[in-house]
């Protein structure tokens, strides 16, 4: 199935959770997900719900973090 991740189209396996997606994009070395926030279809998915939230076809996901800024 297809989701939009940070504006890019991505194919993912059905049943993928938010937690699995975060692990997938955090790199193979398993960088921690602290300081990352997830928005799904304009609604924030709290960290406590990452593992239980299953993505659906057509979801628009934003993954954001802190960067340098004034």
């Amino acid at each position: 199935m297809t989701i939009t991740l940070n504006g890019e189209t991505r194919e993912i396996q059905p049943g993928t959770t938010v937690a699995m997606l975060v692990a997938l994009i955090s790199g193979a070395e398993g960088r921690d997900s602290r300081g990352v926030a997830i928005e799904r279809n304009l609604e924030i998915v709290p960290k406590s719900e990452h593992a239980s939230t299953i993505l659906e076809d057509g979801d628009r996901i934003e993954v954001v973090q802190f960067v340098g800024g004034g």
Partner: peptide, 30 residues
């Protein structure tokens, strides 16, 4: 002060602000 931006999906090894300007040393003001 810090900004909030999309995680760079094409380069997961990119340097991260939090590894240098650490949130336990400075109060982050988003």
């Amino acid at each position: 002060t810090v900004a909030l931006r999309r995680v760079n999906l094409s380069n997961p090894d990119e340097e991260r602000l939090t590894d240098f300007v650490k949130p336990d040393e400075f109060t982050y003001l988003p």
